[in-house]
């Protein structure tokens, strides 16, 4: 992956769409994501505990959602992009068996800072799991 190119600020235009990214939501992703972010809340790894909370299954934690948002934007921007902010609003939960599809577009360009703002959403079968904006500085 070291050869992967970083997008240059001058190549990016407002309105440009990011390539869609469909992420299968699985038990290993939810439970593994929770543990990798040091979040041991039972609803993220214990199905029985999640059901007692009124959920049909374990559900994704926020820190995993943030990680996947980083992956979506970084996958498009490239390894040289530097994140300035990652702001998300949570919606419908991510349960195993679903698929979350990220879509996004460039919603602003700041030439002085060489900073690009991406507005995105990650949608599953119940609606938007996450909506948000990410700003990255490009070379």
């Amino acid at each position: 992956m070291t050869s992967k190119k970083t997008r240059r600020f001058d190549e990016v235009r407002a309105g440009e769409a990011l390539p869609e990214l469909a992420i299968p939501i699985t038990v290993p992703l939810i439970a593994g994501g929770a543990i990798a972010t040091r979040d041991y809340f039972p609803g993220h790894h214990d199905a029985e505990a999640a059901r007692k909370l009124g959920s049909p299954h374990i559900f994704m934690n926020i820190l995993t959602t943030s990680g996947l948002v980083q992956r979506f934007v970084e996958g498009w921007a490239g390894p040289g992009a530097r994140f300035g902010s990652l702001k998300i609003k949570l919606g419908a939960p991510n349960y195993p068996g679903d698929t979350m599809t990220f879509t996004g577009e460039v919603s602003g360009c700041d030439a002085d800072k060489r900073s690009v703002e991406v507005t995105l959403k990650g949608k599953n079968s119940m609606g938007n799991h996450v909506t948000g904006t990410v700003s990255v500085v490009l070379p």
Binding site: T2, I23, G33, A36, T37, T64, Q70, R71, E74, P79
Partner: peptide, 19 residues
């Protein structure tokens, strides 16, 4: 490295010391 593995983040900046 484990965080990158589960998230599917592939930027070598986080895992490849040479890069």
């Amino acid at each position: 490295r484990q965080w990158c593995e589960i998230m599917g983040v592939e930027n070598p900046l986080y895992t490849d010391a040479a890069f």
